[in-house]
């Protein structure tokens, strides 16, 4: 474990917590009377969260952590896997099933056909992988899928008029975690002999590059202290 990877994992955990906080805020609005302006905004406007991206992430974790009970790495590793699995599936459940939260989900805008991402990633994983075993192919699939999982969310943000802070922070943290992982891979390459994982490195690089324009608009909105807006 190195500082880059720990920072990456904590950033990833933060992104999940921000999303859970956002869902909690929407839920707690229901109990209050309407005049609370925040509630009005949250319940009237779409939450800006893409269910498609959440479902893809749940699939990423499900296919990546198949070895959670067979290969014990460390207590930290197991606990983090359980957190990511539990949170991603419960977020999908909330947006799909919860009577209040699902009202804030705008399915007319979240139209990305994520099936078109799953199939090519699966085919690619069958062709390019480190070892042709069931677990390894699904693990590779999860890497390819995670690289593109943010696409429905980024497209939804382009369509969302006013992106609220929590959603913007969620996407930023999600992009930043993989950028930190790239530093971790560089560090491990130079400190651990024979540490070479091209598939992981290239997928991680592609994933981070997909956030490039979001990072640009995110930082310029911070600098100019204006609302985050992605060009359509």
């Amino acid at each position: 474990m190195n500082i880059f990877r720990l920072a990456g994992d904590m950033t990833h955990l933060m992104s999940v917590l921000v999303l859970l906080l956002k869902i909690h805020t929407i839920k707690s609005c229901a109990g209050k009377s309407y005049p609370c302006s925040l509630c009005f905004i949250l319940l009237e406007s779409s939450s800006g969260i893409s269910l498609k991206t959440q479902e893809l992430y749940a699939l990423v974790f499900a296919t990546r952590y198949l070895d959670i009970f067979t290969d014990f790495i460390s207590v930290y590793n197991t606990i983090m896997k359980l957190i990511f699995l539990g949170s991603s599936f419960s977020i999908v459940w909330y947006i799909r099933r919860h009577k209040i939260v699902r009202r804030s989900y705008d399915k007319d805008q979240d139209t990305f056909r994520h099936f078109f991402l799953v199939l090519p990633c699966l085919l690619l994983a069958l062709i390019i992988n480190e070892k042709f075993t069931f677990k390894e192919v699904l693990w590779t699939f999860s890497l390819y899928l995670e690289a593109v999982a943010i696409l429905p969310q980024l497209i939804l943000l382009q369509r969302t008029r006013n992106i609220d802070n929590l959603t913007g922070q969620y996407v930023f943290l999600l992009g930043a975690y993989r950028a930190l992982y790239i530093l971790n891979w560089i560090y491990r390459y130079f400190t651990e002999p024979h540490y070479v994982h091209w598939i992981t490195w290239i997928s991680g690089l592609v994933q981070t590059l997909l956030y490039a324009d979001f990072f640009y608009y995110y930082f310029s909105s911070l600098k100019n202290n204006v609302k985050l807006k992605l060009p359509a």
Partner: peptide
């Protein structure tokens, strides 16, 4: 048998 490449990262 080469050690299964246990993936130690999340």
């Amino acid at each position: 048998k080469e050690k299964e490449t246990a993936h130690d990262e999340l």
